[in-house]
Design a protein around this nucleic acid. Structure first.
Ligand SMILES: [Mn+2]
Ligand SMILES: [Mn+2]
Ligand SMILES: [Mn+2]
Ligand SMILES: [Mn+2]
Lengths: 216, 216
DNA sequence: TTGAGCATTTTGATGAATCAAAGTATCGCC
DNA sequence: GGCGATACTTTGATTCATCAAAATGCTCAA
């Protein structure tokens, strides 16, 4: 059995790119808020368990087993978040810390039953895709708003800026996940993007804010 | 924050009577499947945290704080069991080991929301009473059929499973509130309970169905 | 090409939870 | 009242996860 600590390492390694390429232990230590020495010790232990490839002073990278395991944890985390928000009615801003703990306690078996009960949701309440039981991650055609042509409306799928103040502000204009947003104009000189609500009202935001909206 | 290990000690102390009277560390060690030395060490630690009264060589007993904490853990455990059985459809025989882990990961806050979602169940799928959020344990002379001795007839008082199909099915055998029911046999291996109608006819149901009959 | 600066590893310590085995207290029996 | 069996505690280890601080190695800029 793998410890909650190891599971959190795997998830973090995955999150900072360690599935595709080798990452430095320093970057991992920063992401986990641990001292470098602690992470060095753990890197050796994860390697002994076949979860990462570790070359001293060169970094670590998930093995196939490590990646599969990380994706299962992410799947558990996101299904739990759907349950907390949709079934129990918790605000989306409160669910993450609870899921961070529960993800280590739910067995994959119970998670599959919960997934069925929730009717196999594809996205968590923050808009991140939920991996399938097989480990497959649905690839979508989601792109930041700023990578779409102007003058059209798009379906809002996800906010990459996970900041309650920002999403609540957007919600006051009716911009929530599942609704559409009008991309009116992007003034490249000033860096100001003009959005359009369903009612035709024009709102201006900076281009970095606009790029944190993933749309389809 | 209290560790999962401490929580399991508290629950076990409570289960073997340590809420009412002092229990020996030997009895606790046997109940927890740990060596006596381990339990001695932990007893001192629990006492330091104000959870038990510990007199060396005389035994331990829960403090008020320890009892309150134990009852919260039991509440979480039993609500989780109702969720696993009733909402996710797991067989009652499979739910306990999962609940044994999940009880340490669910916060009391989430448990209260889950309790509301489940409509404040009074008993878990094994028929044990679920403590209220206040810590109060409903005392009643009503007990689930499965907590009565076999080979007798009992007065049906209430169904804890509020499902018309089930109660209508029971009614076809004359099992309605105010009538008597024979508790013939409970096969713990298969989980099948054999009931007896007023006319002596034998009916078989699962133990979770049987435990939803509150009798006197 | 070389050393200074930074990243990484090593070393020595800590606290939690556990065990095995050695030491000690208590209780009941003679 | 003493003695032995039994119950309990202590001691010395181990594993996991962590830190602080010392040692080491790598890289880049002069
Ligand atoms: Mn999350
Ligand atoms: Mn976590
Ligand atoms: Mn149980
Ligand atoms: Mn437990």
């Amino acid at each position: 059995m793998i410890s909650a600590t190891s599971e959190n390492y795997l998830k973090t390694i995955h999150a900072i790119g360690g599935s595709e390429h080798s990452i430095s232990l320093g970057a991992l230590a920063r992401a986990l808020n641990l001292t470098p020495g602690t992470v060095t010790t753990m890197a050796r232990q994860l390697a002994d368990n076949g979860l990462v490839h570790y070359l001293p002073r060169r970094g670590i990278r998930l093995t196939d087993l490590g990646r599969t395991t990380a994706i299962q944890i992410i799947r558990r985390h996101r299904i739990i978040e759907v349950f907390l928000a949709d079934t129990l009615g918790m605000p989306a801003s409160d669910i993450h810390p609870e899921a961070e703990i529960l993800e280590h306690a739910f067995s994959n078996h119970v998670i599959n039953l919960l997934d069925k009960f929730l009717d196999h949701p594809a996205f968590d309440p923050h808009g991140s895709p939920i991996p399938e039981a097989s480990g497959h991650i649905r690839t979508t055609s989601l792109k930041p708003l700023t990578q779409r042509p102007e003058g059209h409306r798009y379906l809002i799928h996800r906010f990459t800026r996970n900041d309650a103040e920002f999403t609540e502000w957007l919600a006051t204009f009716g911009f929530t996940i599942g609704t559409t947003i009008g991309f009116h104009k992007w003034d490249r000189i000033t860096g100001i993007v003009t959005l359009e609500t369903a009612g035709g009202r024009r709102i201006q935001v900076g281009e970095s804010a606009a790029s944190s909206l993933l749309v389809e």
